[in-house]
Design a protein around this nucleic acid. Sequence first.
DNA 1: CAACAGTTTAGAACTATTATAATGTAGAAA
DNA 2: TTTCTACATTATAATAGTTCTAAACTGTTG
Lengths: 139, 139
Amino acid sequence: MLDNSQYIEKLRSSGLRPTKQRIKICEVLFNSEKTFHFTINELVKRISKSTNDKISLATVYNTVHAFKNKGYLKEIPINSDQSYFDTNTSHHHHFYDETQKDLIDIDDADVEPVKINTRIPGKKIKSVEVLVKVEDDKS
Amino acid sequence: MLDNSQYIEKLRSSGLRPTKQRIKICEVLFNSEKTFHFTINELVKRISKSTNDKISLATVYNTVHAFKNKGYLKEIPINSDQSYFDTNTSHHHHFYDETQKDLIDIDDADVEPVKINTRIPGKKIKSVEVLVKVEDDKS
DNA sequence: CAACAGTTTAGAACTATTATAATGTAGAAA
DNA sequence: TTTCTACATTATAATAGTTCTAAACTGTTG
């Protein structure tokens, strides 16, 4: 068993009880060297692979939403039949490969800061997200 | 009855048979002075208001997808439980008001062109879309 | 340990969307 | 105009992602 005290602390400090399900999901999401994108379906598969204790689908949904609300995950705006999440919560944008149905991070250094020269009165900007759709270049 | 020859021509020239359902949907979508955003659900309501001939939900879906494929509509990438479409097919970006769940066009002149300084080998860029999420500014 | 509020769970419910297959129709050909 | 046929429409069923429900369970506090 790995050291989960970091996750227990993380959960507790954000007002989420460190249940064994949540700790397991933290392991699956945040233990890997690289950040990644996932759908709920894919996450459920990753969880099954890494534990014998089944976690209910409802709990996976609950937990992902809780983590998203706490800022530990980001949801990626994309037209799809399912929601995509990102364990990389730092500011960055995405390529979406429409041929492969695949999301790819764009290093933030590779995008000039997006300047929006207008505002909506009474509203503040929460995020600016760029989605670059690509397809096979048949040439 | 208005002059629908423009829609009949438009449909025919793109290889879509000008059926009365498609012409009616053209009227609802393209007759108005201003472009607008809609969900399938909202479109169905607009159609009901403007005609007594009911159009099947399946036909609305079929037609919206056909129009989207022909480039007469754009789908807006946003995380929502339903798809949003835009009758404004010119290049522009959007504000999404998370408080009001409302989409607002950003005039293209108000956004500095987004520069992506990286590419994916073998892929070509199909679109670059910016979504600016805003919320109530409580200050 | 007792108590309780928060959490998990299986399964039902819900909702947007797509598939199906029978019926209808626009357009072309005779 | 009549006929033919490929394309469209339709009601309905099916599908799939997500949320809801309410009972059982558990982490935390006293």
